[in-house]
Simulated scan of single mutants.
Amino acid sequence: MGLPPGHVTAVPGLSRTAQLKALGNGVVPLQAVSALEHLRARAAARGHDPLTAPTAAP
């Protein structure tokens, strides 16, 4: 999953429900990386590179 073993599960006395609540709706790091790579590939296929594109003026 991209998190170290026991990130939440090694906490003594923490129930499964509490473990899930502690994780919340957060994205697992490897899933986030995968999603960003996918989006960047789609942008590149359309001729855009979001890492070098100019940003809008504030």
Score class of each variant (00 low, 15 high):
residue 20 L to D: 15
residue 18 A to D: 11
residue 44 A to M: 15
residue 26 G to D: 13
residue 52 T to Y: 03
residue 18 A to L: 08
residue 19 Q to S: 04
residue 43 A to G: 04
residue 18 A to W: 00
residue 29 P to F: 08
residue 5 P to E: 10
residue 30 L to A: 12
residue 6 G to S: 05
residue 28 V to K: 09
residue 49 D to F: 02
residue 39 L to C: 11
residue 46 R to W: 13
residue 45 A to R: 14
residue 53 A to G: 03
residue 24 G to K: 06
residue 55 T to M: 10
residue 57 A to I: 06
residue 3 L to K: 05
residue 55 T to Q: 12
residue 28 V to N: 08
residue 3 L to Y: 00
residue 54 P to H: 07
residue 40 R to S: 00
residue 4 P to A: 14
residue 16 R to N: 08
residue 13 G to Q: 11
residue 29 P to S: 10
residue 40 R to Q: 04
residue 5 P to W: 02
residue 32 A to R: 14
residue 39 L to A: 13
residue 54 P to K: 05
residue 18 A to S: 13
residue 14 L to A: 10
residue 31 Q to Y: 09
residue 26 G to T: 12
residue 43 A to T: 00
residue 44 A to L: 15
residue 24 G to H: 07
residue 2 G to S: 07
residue 50 P to A: 04
residue 33 V to F: 10
residue 36 L to S: 08
residue 26 G to N: 14
residue 2 G to H: 02
residue 36 L to W: 05
residue 51 L to V: 05
residue 47 G to S: 03
residue 35 A to I: 11
residue 58 P to A: 14
residue 8 V to R: 03
residue 27 V to T: 12
residue 8 V to I: 15
residue 49 D to R: 03
residue 15 S to A: 11
residue 34 S to W: 00
residue 26 G to E: 13
residue 29 P to I: 06
residue 50 P to W: 02
residue 25 N to G: 15
residue 21 K to D: 11
residue 17 T to F: 01
residue 52 T to Q: 06
residue 2 G to W: 00
residue 51 L to G: 01
residue 19 Q to T: 03
residue 21 K to L: 14
residue 36 L to R: 09
residue 10 A to E: 08
residue 16 R to F: 04
residue 45 A to W: 09
residue 22 A to S: 13
residue 56 A to V: 09
residue 8 V to W: 01
residue 36 L to N: 01
residue 5 P to R: 08
residue 33 V to Q: 12
residue 40 R to K: 10
residue 5 P to V: 05
residue 44 A to P: 01
residue 16 R to C: 02
residue 41 A to P: 05
residue 31 Q to N: 14
residue 30 L to C: 10
residue 41 A to D: 15
residue 32 A to T: 09
residue 47 G to T: 02
residue 20 L to G: 11
residue 28 V to Q: 11
residue 11 V to E: 01
residue 16 R to H: 04
residue 57 A to C: 11
residue 16 R to T: 00
residue 38 H to D: 09
residue 5 P to C: 02
residue 19 Q to C: 08
residue 26 G to K: 13
residue 27 V to D: 10
residue 49 D to T: 00
residue 13 G to I: 02
residue 17 T to N: 05
residue 3 L to C: 06
residue 20 L to S: 13
residue 8 V to Q: 00
residue 54 P to D: 08
residue 21 K to M: 12
residue 58 P to S: 14
residue 16 R to E: 11
residue 46 R to G: 15
residue 46 R to H: 15
residue 57 A to S: 14
residue 5 P to L: 05
residue 54 P to E: 05
residue 29 P to T: 09
residue 1 M to A: 06
residue 39 L to W: 08
residue 57 A to T: 11
residue 10 A to K: 08
residue 7 H to I: 01
residue 1 M to W: 01
residue 26 G to S: 15
residue 26 G to C: 13
residue 18 A to R: 10
residue 58 P to L: 12
residue 55 T to C: 09
residue 14 L to P: 02
residue 13 G to N: 12
residue 38 H to P: 00
residue 49 D to V: 06
residue 41 A to N: 14
residue 17 T to L: 06
residue 35 A to N: 09
residue 49 D to G: 02
residue 16 R to Q: 11
residue 30 L to T: 13
residue 53 A to Q: 05
residue 44 A to W: 13
residue 37 E to A: 12
residue 47 G to F: 04
residue 7 H to A: 15
residue 32 A to K: 14
residue 27 V to F: 07
residue 32 A to S: 15
residue 53 A to W: 04
residue 52 T to K: 03
residue 47 G to M: 07
residue 12 P to S: 01
residue 46 R to A: 15
residue 37 E to Q: 12
residue 37 E to S: 11
residue 41 A to V: 07
residue 28 V to A: 13
residue 57 A to P: 07
residue 42 R to F: 04
